[in-house]
Amino acid sequence: MYNYFLAVFLMMAGFYVVIAQGNLVKKVIGLGMFQTSVFILYISIGKVNGGQAPILTEGVTSYSNPLPHVLMLTAIVVGVATTAVGLALVIRIHEAYGSVEEHDIQQRDNAEDALLEGEL
C-alpha cells in the first residue's frame, strides 16, 4: 500500500512544481516528475507478491503482470517527447523574449499591447 501513497505524494510534488513555478524550465522539469510518478502508480498496480519479472524462466510459476509494464514503456516515450518539445519551446521563447520567467514575458506582452493601442 505504501507504494500507492508514495506515488500520490510524488505526483503532487511534481504537479505543484508545474503549476506554482514561474520559471518555464522548472515547469517542464516538474511535468517530468509528475509523469514519472504516474509510472510508479501503474507499475505498483502490476506487482504480484512473490511474483517474478515477466520473463519465462524454468521453475517460476508466479509472474508480475506484464501489461502495465508495456503501457508505461509507451508512457515514458510520451514523457520524453513532451519534455523535448517543451524545452525546444522554452529555447525559442528565450530567443524571442530574452527571459524564461512567466512574469517577465507577461510584462513584455502587456507593454507591447499598450504601445499598440497608443499608436491607434
Binding site: 508545474v18 503549476i19 515547469k27 517543451g86 521563447i93 514575458i105 506582452d109
Partner: peptide
C-alpha cells in the same frame, strides 16, 4: 504564439496525465 503553445503544452500535458491516471 510560442508562449501560447507552451501554455497549451503544460495544460494539455496535465490533462493527458490526468486521463492516464483515470484510465489507471
Amino acid at each position: 504564439s510560442l508562449n501560447a503553445a507552451f501554455q497549451y503544452l503544460i495544460m494539455g500535458s496535465i490533462g493527458a496525465t490526468f486521463i492516464l491516471i483515470g484510465i489507471g
